[in-house]
Simulated assay, not measured.
Amino acid sequence: MAAHQLNLSLPAAPTAVTTARHRAVDAIAEWDVVLDDDVVHTAALVVSELVTNAVRHTATGQVSLHVRILESALRIEVCDSSPALPAHRDPDGHSESGRGLFLVAALAERCGAEPTPVGKRCWAEIAVPAAAPAPGIAVSLPL
């Protein structure tokens, strides 16, 4: 499967969440692979949650989104300039936030966060059932 990717730099503002989600879904739709609707919807939710966290917790004005398809997963990465890694906490029934990372962990095959030289990277991998080429795309099989 050919590697496809989206790399996007966004302002650390609430409007970045909608922009990131739409751009990711549009990019995935343009790739020459057919992904299950559940994978695309899950990707949209994961992008929204990770970008929202980055916007809320970044120390400077930019966040970046990277989406790429691997052989068996759709990998989503969001980077920001805050060195503080996300902490899992148990929100009580009255909390208005704190559930996003639980959603990401429940929806993704794997997820995590790691420091970078300029902040952190939060990532998630969504399992991709054997993706098929888009209709009209020729596939050559070895003889």
Rank of each mutant, 00 (worst) to 15 (best):
H4C: 14
L6A: 05
L6N: 04
N7V: 11
N7D: 14
L8C: 13
S9A: 10
L10V: 08
A12P: 01
P14C: 02
T18Y: 07
T18V: 13
T18F: 06
R23S: 10
V25F: 03
I28Q: 08
A29P: 02
W31V: 01
D32L: 14
V33P: 05
V33A: 05
V34F: 03
V34Y: 09
D36R: 13
H41E: 15
H41S: 15
A44K: 01
A44L: 06
V46K: 09
V46T: 14
S48Y: 04
S48C: 14
S48L: 10
E49P: 13
L50I: 13
L50W: 12
V51S: 12
V51C: 08
V51H: 07
V51I: 15
T52S: 11
T52K: 01
A54D: 06
A54M: 06
T58L: 07
T58Q: 10
A59S: 05
A59D: 12
G61R: 07
G61A: 14
Q62P: 01
S64G: 10
H66E: 10
V67W: 02
V67S: 02
V67E: 10
R68F: 11
I69P: 01
L70F: 10
E71M: 06
S72T: 10
R75D: 11
R75A: 15
R75C: 08
I76Y: 01
E77K: 09
C79M: 13
A84D: 12
L85C: 00
L85S: 03
P86D: 03
P86N: 03
P86E: 00
H88Y: 14
H88W: 14
D92N: 10
H94S: 12
H94K: 05
S95Q: 02
S95W: 02
S97V: 04
R99W: 07
R99Y: 10
R99G: 03
R99I: 07
G100I: 11
F102P: 00
L103V: 13
V104H: 00
A105N: 03
A105K: 14
A106P: 03
E109A: 15
R110A: 00
C111K: 07
G112H: 03
A113G: 05
E114P: 09
T116R: 00
T116E: 08
P117C: 05
P117K: 04
P117F: 09
G119E: 03
C122I: 10
C122N: 12
W123T: 07
E125R: 06
E125W: 09
I126D: 06
A127M: 08
A127R: 12
P129W: 07
A130E: 06
A134P: 10
G136I: 02
A138C: 04
V139R: 13
V139P: 04
V139F: 05
V139M: 08
L141W: 15
P142D: 11
P142H: 07
